[in-house]
Simulated assay, not measured.
Amino acid sequence: MASWAELQASVPEFAAGVRGIFDKGRHKTMATVRADGSPRISGIEAEFVDGELTFGSMAGSNKGADLRRDPRLAIHSPSLDPPEDVPESWQGDAKITGKAVLTHEVTEGEAPGPRFRVDIEEAVRVRVGEPADHLLIEVWRPDSGLRRIARR
């Protein structure tokens, strides 16, 4: 597992691309594991703060309960369609998988509840390649670094 800062230090250009995609919109999608082992999809607002990917959960939420029981998660960036006329100009979409680590509880104010950071197991960026006849899939893992896959 790695922090966002470690990913950035390892592959700065890739990290900038992933972050640019995540920063395209406020709302992301998160998958967690329910008590019965089935997946739960939730909306989430996540942000990059002080070298970490962070997010909060409302007090008493199912998502927060999922993460306290089983910290595994996947977060998907906002998703926009590629431009039809110039598909290779599409930034792509991005996914980060890992584990939620509870950092603190907010007990007062507008949004009480747990706050988490993400220990990153994998970061993925998918975009249209050049020429626009294939997808370029970039996968980074802390134990194996960055690899690129062209899929036609």
Rank of each mutant, 00 (worst) to 15 (best):
A15F: 03
A15S: 05
A15V: 02
A16V: 09
G17R: 09
G17K: 09
V18Y: 00
R19I: 04
R19V: 08
R19Q: 15
R19D: 11
I21Q: 04
F22I: 06
F22P: 08
D23N: 12
D23P: 09
K24S: 15
G25L: 07
R26S: 12
H27Y: 13
H27F: 12
K28T: 12
T29S: 04
T29Q: 04
T29V: 07
M30E: 12
M30V: 14
M30C: 12
M30Y: 10
A31D: 10
A31N: 12
V33D: 07
A35P: 11
A35M: 08
R40L: 14
S42R: 01
G43N: 11
E45A: 13
E45L: 10
A46Q: 03
A46F: 08
E47A: 11
V49A: 03
V49G: 01
V49S: 02
D50H: 07
D50F: 03
G51T: 02
G51E: 02
G51Q: 02
E52V: 05
E52P: 02
T54C: 06
G56N: 01
S57N: 02
S57V: 02
M58F: 11
G60H: 00
G60I: 00
G60R: 00
N62P: 05
N62I: 09
G64T: 09
A65Q: 08
A65M: 01
D66R: 03
L67E: 01
R69T: 13
R69C: 04
R69P: 10
P71W: 05
P71V: 07
P71E: 08
P71L: 06
R72V: 03
R72I: 02
A74L: 15
I75G: 04
S77V: 08
P78Q: 10
P78A: 08
S79I: 15
S79E: 15
L80W: 14
L80F: 15
L80R: 14
L80V: 15
P82D: 00
P83Y: 02
E84L: 15
D85M: 08
D85K: 06
P87N: 12
E88L: 04
Q91H: 11
Q91T: 13
Q91D: 15
G92N: 08
G92Y: 04
D93V: 13
D93K: 11
D93S: 14
A94P: 03
A94F: 02
K95D: 05
K95M: 11
K95E: 14
I96F: 05
I96S: 03
K99H: 15
A100T: 12
A100I: 11
A100M: 11
T103D: 12
H104W: 12
H104F: 14
E105A: 06
V106S: 06
T107N: 11
T107V: 13
T107P: 05
E108R: 08
G109C: 08
E110R: 13
G113V: 00
G113F: 01
